[in-house]
C-alpha cells in the first residue's frame, strides 16, 4: 500500500467526524485524538518491529515481551485496585501465560522460533489475557461486594475462606470466559477474524490462513481460561486475613 493510498483511508475518519459534527455528538475531539494516537503508536511499533526483526536478538524479543506485559499490567490493575497486591498478581499471571503458551508453541515446533512469530503471537496472548483479567476483576469485585453477607454466613458456620468465596469465584471465572467461548462458536459464520483476514488480503493461501487462525483461537481459549482461574486463585486470599476473617475491599 502506498502512502497516497494510505492517506485515502482517512476518509473513514472523516465520516464519523462529519456525522458527529452534524448531529452534535461531541465526539470530534476524541475521534481526532484516537486517530493521531493510532497513527503515531502503530508507526512507532512498525519501525521498532522492523528493527527487532532485523536484529534477531533474544534480548530485544525479551524486552518487547516485558514491555507488553508491563503495559497490560498497568492497564488491568485499575480494575482490581481494591484487591491487595493486584499488580504483582496480574504480572505473574501474564508472565505465566506467556511462558506456558510459548513453551508449547516453540517446544513442539508448532511455530518457528523467530521474532516474526514470537512477538505478534505474544501480543495476541498478552492482549487477550489483559482483557480477560479486566473482565474477571470487574465481575469478581462486584460479586464480592454484592455477596458479602453470604461470605460472612459461611465463615460464621465454620467454612474456610475458599468455601466462603467459592460461588463468587466460579461465577466470575465463568462470566469472564464466556465471551471468548461464545465468539469461537460463531467464528467464520458471523465474523472473519482480523488476523486471518489480514493474511488473506496480504495474499496468503486462505487454507493456510485458516490453519494459523485456528492455532490462535485455541491459544486464546487456553489464555482465557488460565488467566481467569489463575487470577481468581491468586486474588481471593487477599480478601481474608490469617484469622480467616473477611476483609473489606480497599476503597
Amino acid at each position: 500500500m502506498s502512502y497516497l493510498t494510505l492517506s485515502l483511508t482517512l476518509i473513514f475518519v472523516l465520516i464519523p467526524l462529519l456525522l458527529s459534527r452534524t448531529l452534535k455528538l461531541g465526539l470530534e475531539k476524541d475521534t481526532l485524538i484516537a486517530t493521531v494516537r493510532s497513527i503515531i503508536q502503530l508507526l512507532v511499533v512498525g519501525y521498532v518491529l522492523q528493527y527487532v526483526f532485523q536484529a534477531d536478538s533474544f534480548i530485544f524479543i525479551l524486552l518487547m515481551i516485558l514491555l507488553m506485559i508491563g503495559a497490560a499490567t498497568q492497564n488491568a490493575r485499575k480494575k482490581g485496585a481494591s484487591i491487595q497486591g493486584i499488580t504483582w498478581k496480574l504480572f505473574i499471571t501474564f508472565v505465566f501465560i506467556e511462558i506456558l503458551t510459548q513453551s508449547i508453541l516453540l517446544g513442539l515446533n508448532i511455530v518457528p522460533a523467530t521474532p516474526q512469530y514470537i512477538i505478534p503471537i505474544s501480543g495476541m496472548v498478552i492482549g487477550n489475557s489483559m482483557v480477560l483479567g479486566i473482565l474477571f476483576l470487574n465481575r469478581f469485585t462486584a460479586e464480592v461486594e454484592n455477596q458479602k453477607e453470604e461470605t460472612e454466613l459461611i465463615l460464621s458456620l465454620g467454612g474456610t475462606p475458599k468455601q466462603a468465596i467459592h460461588t463468587q469465584l466460579i461465577t466470575s471465572i465463568k462470566a469472564s470466559t464466556i465471551p471468548t467461548i461464545e465468539s469461537q462458536k460463531t467464528i467464520g459464520l458471523v465474523q472473519l477474524p482480523g488476523m486471518m483476514s489480514g493474511q488473506i488480503i496480504a495474499g496468503a493461501d486462505p487454507v493456510q490462513a485458516v490453519q494459523f487462525q485456528l492455532l490462535i483461537l485455541f491459544l486464546l481459549l487456553t489464555t482465557a481460561v488460565v488467566t481467569s482461574i489463575m487470577l481468581g486463585f491468586l486474588s481471593y486470599p487477599a480478601l481474608f486475613n490469617k484469622r480467616m476473617q473477611f476483609l473489606k475491599l480497599k476503597s
Binding site: 453477607e149 460472612e152 454466613l153 465463615l155 460464621s156 458456620l157 465454620g158 467454612g159 474456610t160 484469622r243 480467616m244 476473617q245
Partner: peptide, 12 residues
C-alpha cells in the same frame, strides 16, 4: 478459627 466458629454458633 474454624473450630471456634463451630463451638460459638451465631444466628445473624
Amino acid at each position: 478459627p474454624l473450630d471456634l466458629r463451630r463451638k460459638v454458633g451465631i444466628a445473624l
